[in-house]
Computed example of a mutant assay.
Amino acid sequence: MKKGSCMNPGKGFQKVLQCLFVLIILSGGMTSALLAIEPKEILTRSLEAQFGLDFEGIKKTEFRLPGRSYTTTTRIIRQEPDFTYTTTLAPARLKRLVILDDGKFRIKHIRGSNKFGFFPSLNSPEAKEIKRKSLNLIFINYKISKLLDGYILARPVYVISLIPKHSGNPRRKVWIDKKMYLPLKEEDYNWRGELISSSFYTEIHFDKRFSKEKFYRDFPQRPRKKVFSQERFLSLKDLRRKIRFPVSSAHYLPPSYEFQEAVLFSKERAVKLTYTNGLGVICLFQMPSNIKLRGHLEGAHPLVWEKGGRTFLLMADISRKELIKIKQSVK
Rank of each mutant, 00 (worst) to 15 (best):
Leu47Ser: 07
Lys146Glu: 09
Pro125Tyr: 04
Ser198Pro: 01
Leu314His: 05
Pro156Ile: 08
His296Thr: 09
Arg269His: 09
Phe119Val: 00
Leu234Val: 15
Leu314Lys: 07
Thr61Pro: 04
Phe21Ser: 15
Asn123Thr: 09
Gly28Gln: 05
Phe139Val: 01
His251Glu: 13
Ile152Asp: 06
Ile58Asp: 11
Pro183Val: 11
Gly10Asn: 07
Arg217Met: 11
Lys165Ile: 11
Ala92Leu: 12
Ile318Val: 14
Ser161Arg: 15
Lys225Cys: 11
Lys60His: 01
Met180His: 15
Phe63Val: 07
Lys104Ala: 12
Glu62Ala: 10
Ala36Glu: 13
Asn141Pro: 02
Val227Arg: 14
Ile176Asn: 02
Pro170Thr: 03
Ala250Asn: 04
Asn8Trp: 07
Phe233His: 02
Lys108Trp: 12
Leu279Val: 10
Ile58Gly: 06
Ile291Trp: 07
Glu203Tyr: 07
Ser235Phe: 09
Leu284Lys: 07
Gly193Ile: 11
Lys208Ile: 13
Ser229Pro: 00
Gly29Asn: 11
Gln14Gly: 00
Val174Gly: 12
Lys2Asn: 12
Gly299Thr: 08
Thr31His: 07
Lys133Glu: 15
Asn136Ala: 15
Thr202Ile: 13
Ser199Arg: 08
Lys104Asn: 14
Lys115Val: 13
Phe245Lys: 05
Asn277Thr: 03
Arg75Pro: 00
Ser32Lys: 05
Ile243Cys: 03
Trp191Tyr: 15
Asn169Pro: 01
Phe245Trp: 13
Lys272Leu: 12
Phe13Asp: 03
Lys226Ser: 09
Ile76Ala: 02
Lys15Ile: 15
Ser248Ala: 15
Lys133Cys: 04
Val98Trp: 02
Val247Gln: 06
Glu268Leu: 00
Gly67His: 03
Arg172Val: 01
Asp82Ile: 00
Gln50Pro: 00
Gly103Val: 08
Asn290Ile: 00
Ile160Asn: 05
Val330Ser: 04
Asp82Trp: 02
Pro125Ala: 09
